[in-house]
């Protein structure tokens, strides 16, 4: 099983590397699916079959579908890829990459120094997980439910295709502007009928 672990780890790392270096969003997402599948394999090798299945279903399935859906809706095609190519210059990525490399080294040193014992793997069955979830983590599960609900409501609200309005104050401003422009036009064009005397005076001022 350790072979499975190393192999799938390799696949996961390489696929993830591909994800963050692709220019085209669809390519990146496909590599991301590969990465998720590889991580699912790692879970399996670690003796967590339930989580491995969830990884495939939710991450590689549902979430990826969401991403691809958005990419298709926004019609991100070759232009985006071209732009990505322009954006992703060595000047841009060398610095962060070096920083993260240093961080990786430090984590590595910490891990080696920790001198952790070998992992005696044992399968943790879905039953155990379920008992734990609906036993001690019941409230956390409820909270996760709330979170998801909030996510749905938030996504539905934000995703509504609204007019170009950044902020309610800004909108009021533009509204007011439009309204006054309309009124002014009315005064100029119309002969003043329908506008009270006092109001007309104000406009003229």
């Amino acid at each position: 099983m350790s072979t499975l672990f190393y192999l799938s780890s390799l696949v996961a790392i390489v696929a993830t590397l591909m994800v963050i270096t692709r220019y085209h969003p669809i390519h990146a997402l496909l590599y991301l699916v590969v990465s998720f599948l590889a991580v699912a394999m790692i879970f399996l090798s670690l003796g967590a079959p339930f989580v491995a299945v969830l990884e495939v279903i939710i991450y590689a399935g549902a979430i990826m579908v969401l991403f691809i859906f958005v990419v298709m809706m926004l019609n991100l095609d070759k232009d985006t890829a071209l732009q990505e190519k322009q954006w992703l210059r060595p000047r841009v990525w060398v610095g962060p990459a070096l920083l993260t490399l240093v961080l990786l080294l430090e984590i590595g040193v910490l891990l080696v120094r920790g001198d952790l014992p070998a992992l005696q793997l044992a399968v943790v069955t879905p039953r155990q997980v379920a008992l734990s979830l609906y036993g001690e983590y019941l409230i956390a599960v409820e909270l996760a439910g709330f979170l998801l609900m909030a996510g749905i409501v938030g996504a539905a609200h934000i995703g509504k295709h609204k007019k170009e309005s950044l902020h309610r104050f800004l909108r009021e401003e533009t509204d007011a502007h439009e309204a006054s422009a309309g009124d002014a036009r009315e005064v100029h064009t119309g002969d003043g009928e329908g506008i009270p005397e006092k109001e007309r005076k104000t406009w003229q001022l």
Partner: peptide, 23 residues
Amino acid sequence: MAVVNIDRVLFVAAVLFLLGLTG
């Protein structure tokens, strides 16, 4: 089951995390 050192797994997790961070 086979024996895998926990630090290896954590290292893989760290590599993935940092790749994400780099992204």
